[in-house]
Amino acid sequence: MKANEQPVAEQASAEDRPQPQPRNTFECRNLSVELRSSGGLACICRSIDFEVREGEFVSIMGRSGSGKTTLLRILGGLLSPTPGSTVRYYSEQVDGPPRGVITVFQNYAASLLPWRTVEKNVALGLEGKVSKDEKAERVAEALAMVSLSKRAKDYPWRLSGGMQQRVQLARALAMRPSVLLLDEPFGALDAMTKTTLQDELLHVYEQTGATVVFVTHDVDEALYLSDRVLILQGDPSTIGESVAVQCSRPRDQIETKQSEGFLTLRRKVYEAIMQGHD
């Protein structure tokens, strides 16, 4: 699906190589962020370097206030870093939301349009950009992916929290994104709904092949979903550790989470998050 967004020639040449080196979707160099606060400018992150490879599922973790959401907003082009920072989406400097990069916000209730039905909410980003038939097709497809086809004509405020977050996910999927940025999307949901949505997200990830950057404060969630977990440490924060998760896919809520590899990583990530905080 992300083939829509990529130059065809490069794709072909990548396939020719025996072992294609995945390209970097995002590349951040010397990334610093200052935000206005009550005491003047507060430095949130300082000289962060990291990259996200094409097709990778990366989680960003850290204590609250460590700048996880800020970092995601920078990748999504919704916030500018301090001058001198480099943020590249493929080869282009990020300056406003790049095409094909779609964010799913934490606050689903505030991010959906209450005067539009579910299907009209999902169609929002397509209006004026694709034909009527294509719009209808893509909306139906996105709703089917998150199992919400039956609620298409309902208003979002009539749905449960988990369903509302699914609507937001469907709105993102209808755009056929190359990159999904998710900001603690399941943070406000109960444990059962959360695990269901995690599995749905993994399913979507496998189906679409999109690159995913996922912000969470839940260690199990980060490890369960990701190929790699980045941990923010310090104040102003930097990337303290980058933990590769080598558990095989498809993952299973019980098997994966009880495997030895998972438990070892869990300990490692916990320790990294706690470092310098006690």
């Binding site: 919704l78 939301p97 964010t103 916000f105 991010s111 929002l124 755009m175």
Partner: peptide
């Protein structure tokens, strides 16, 4: 933010 993100 939604409007910007969807490049409306």
């Amino acid at each position: 933010d939604v409007a910007r993100m969807l490049r409306m």
